[in-house]
């Protein structure tokens, strides 16, 4: 019951945020966005025809009325149909979200898992060459552009100048083997770049925990290193780690893979969003922006609940 009340309160508190996002998206994408009048008119339109189309599109209405219409569509989850393909936005999302998740999951899991492991090793050997080597590697990962990493791995694995093992671009999930063949290059690029940031972040968190008094005391009492790391350090570092992971989720599901998907021609949400940006497809952009904001509110909520799970002292009040 306590949790339920908490969830409800948090969701209510998220409303201003989502409203703000809808306002920004309305002002930038619709109100000041591309004028659709002349796309719908034939050659040499008369002034009457122009006025008629403009009133159909709602351009003659005041700002507040148009924004309220926009909000009503969002609240009723009626995002309409894509302007370029006429497919319903909801069915486009249903088709593309699973692809995006399948593309993002391996890189996300490996990037965070390896990041924590490398950070633990670096923190354990703090100041020694192992630490310096890992942090040097992380600095390289941080400094290389994601785009360069993508092209580099593509040359290495997919071109005739490299190993020529994997497909150059495209997507196929029909069999597990095909999935692995297509997901490998994007995943390697993601992990390489993400490891740079993740390792540094997690190492800073772990070092902070490691230098606390209770850890020193435990070590003095002869607690074995593995147990020390697991029970006294990792467990206490969970809050920043959970925060980081939770807040990456909305970005991954909706737009994070935009570059990967448009580069490799993978039919996910990122590709759909990119195409919508290029063609000015407002219904799709609207849905993507609003859903990202809603996911952010949910991620915040899940993060708070996870804090409670990893640290019983946190209260959900």
């Amino acid at each position: 019951m306590e949790v339920f009340q908490y969830v409800l309160r948090k969701l209510l508190a998220g409303i201003p945020l989502v409203l703000g996002v809808t306002l920004i998206s309305f002002v930038l994408i619709v109100y000041f966005g591309p004028d659709k009048t002349y796309e719908l008119l034939g050659k040499n339109p008369t002034a009457d025809e122009i006025a008629e189309i403009r009133s159909q599109l709602g351009y003659d209405q005041p700002f507040v009325t148009r924004y309220m219409d926009y909000l009503r569509e969002i609240v009723t989850l009626d995002f309409g149909s894509s302007e370029s393909t006429d497919e319903k936005v909801s069915s486009i999302l249903a088709r593309t979200v699973p692809t995006s998740i399948a593309l993002a999951i391996p890189g996300f899991v490996l990037g965070n898992l390896l990041g924590v492991v490398l950070a633990l090793v670096a923190a354990y050997y703090r100041g020694f060459w192992v630490d310096k080597f890992i942090m040097g590697f992380a600095a390289v990962g941080m400094s290389i552009s994601f785009l360069i990493a993508i092209i580099g791995f593509q040359i290495l694995f997919s071109s005739s100048d490299g190993l020529d093992l994997l497909p150059v671009r495209g997507w196929d999930m029909s069999t597990p083997l095909q999935y692995i063949r297509y997901v490998t290059v994007p995943t390697l690029a993601t992990v390489f770049v993400a490891l740079g940031y993740n390792t540094r972040f997690y190492r800073a968190v772990i070092v902070e925990e490691m230098t606390r008094d209770h850890v020193r005391t435990a070590r003095a009492f002869g607690v074995p290193p593995v147990q020390l790391f697991y029970r006294n350090i990792l467990k206490n570092s969970m809050i920043p780690i959970v925060t980081r992971i939770m807040f990456s989720i909305p970005v991954i599901v909706i737009s994070g893979s935009l570059l990967l998907e448009s580069y490799f021609g993978i039919p996910g949400v990122g590709k759909v969003t990119y195409d919508a940006i290029v063609t000015g497809d407002q219904p799709i952009l609207k849905a993507v922006v609003v859903l990202t904001a809603v996911l952010f509110v949910i991620a915040q909520l899940l993060a708070d609940i996870c804090y409670r799970v990893v640290d019983p002292r946190v209260s959900l009040k």
């Binding site: 201003p16 945020l17 703000g20 996002v21 920004i24 998206s25 002002v27 930038l28 994408i29 000041f32 966005g33 591309p34 909305p250 970005v251 909706i254 737009s255 935009l258 969003t273 990119y274 940006i277 000015g280 952009l285 993507v288 922006v289 990202t292 904001a293 952010f296």
Partner: peptide
């Protein structure tokens, strides 16, 4: 704080595209 949360929740590339339209 509200403004920070709102701008944080808009996907970056979409924001660039939208500002570019505007």
């Amino acid at each position: 704080i509200w403004l920070m949360g709102v701008l944080d929740s808009v996907p970056f590339i979409l924001l660039v595209a939208a500002i570019s339209y505007t």
